[in-house]
């Protein structure tokens, strides 16, 4: 059989339409490999068949394409996810791991350094805190002192402001050991309490103490001894029901039964 007879035997159509037996198909493929004429004839029939089929189209249901592509999309995604696992992209991964490891060490070192820094700062803070607590205690103590002092001043001021107080000024006499001395008696005309404000008196020697005297009917009556303090010196002494004058002498510690007249520093008369 020559090739032209073979071409016009119907084998081309039979093969292309899938009707040839496996043996016929195998033979046809061998013949095609040999005869370009046969290939050309086959190709011509295929093109005819395709062109004819394209003229006989029937549109499939519209939604079919999206259904097919969603299934393909899933398979496509599965395909695409494989290569990164199979391909030797491990090199950059190792590099990346190195970077991660290096970064971790840096972070660790940084963390350790930070911990030491924070520990020293913590210790400093504790020390500072202790200092602050001590200082605060001092301030609180000082504050306590001040508030006590203020309280005293306020009480003093309250007493001085009292309208019932009689004020007897006692200046230094020319014969006084300290002529510029001055003291003031605040005498409550109702309760007869006696308070003494030291305006100016020399500090006595340790073994001596100032003593206030009330002059009652021309005779001195002990009104109490007192010490001179820094700052405001306003002390309550003995209650004196009645007096014409008051005077202060410097006596031995604890006071004397009778005043030492040549040691009288100040004296003042009760007026009105």
């Amino acid at each position: 059989m020559n090739i032209h007879d073979y071409i016009s035997s119907g084998i081309i159509e039979s093969y292309v339409l899938g009707l040839a037996s496996p043996e016929e198909s195998a033979e046809f493929e061998r013949m095609c490999a040999t005869y370009s004429e046969l290939r050309a004839a086959r190709n011509a029939f295929e093109i005819q068949l395709e062109a004819s089929s394209q003229q006989q189209k029937i549109d499939p249901p519209r939604e079919l394409k999206s259904r097919i592509f969603s299934r393909i999309g899933m398979e496509s995604d599965a395909l695409m996810s494989k290569p990164p696992i199979n391909k030797p992209v491990l090199v950059p991964r190792i590099g990346f791991a190195k970077y991660v490891a290096a970064a971790s060490l840096l972070l660790l070192a940084g963390s350790v350094a930070l911990n030491f820094y924070l520990l020293s700062e913590y210790k400093k803070s504790i020390a500072r805190n202790n200092e602050l607590i001590a200082a605060q205690t001092q301030v609180a103590a000082a504050n306590q002192v001040l508030s006590t002092k203020l309280q005293t001043y306020e009480e003093t001021m309250g007493l001085m402001k009292n309208p019932l107080m009689a004020i007897i000024k006692m200046p230094g006499s020319p014969n006084s050991p300290a002529p510029s001395s001055m003291a003031t008696v605040y005498w409550n005309t109702e309760t007869k309490d006696v308070y003494l404000l030291v305006n100016k008196l020399p500090l006595p020697v340790p073994e001596k103490q100032y003593q206030l005297w009330a002059i009652v009917d021309g005779k001195p009556v002990d009104a109490g001894v007192f010490d001179i303090h820094e700052g405001l010196s306003f002390v309550k002494l003995k209650t004196i029901p009645k007096a014409e004058a008051f005077a202060i002498t410097l006596e031995k510690k604890g006071g004397s039964p009778a005043p030492t007249m040549d040691a009288m520093y100040v004296m003042g008369r009760v007026t009105g």
């Binding site: 089929s53 006989q56 189209k57 029937i58 549109d59 499939p60």
Partner: peptide, 9 residues
């Protein structure tokens, strides 16, 4: 798809 659908149909 049109020509193949036709062949299948």
């Amino acid at each position: 798809s049109g020509s193949l659908y036709s062949i299948i149909l």
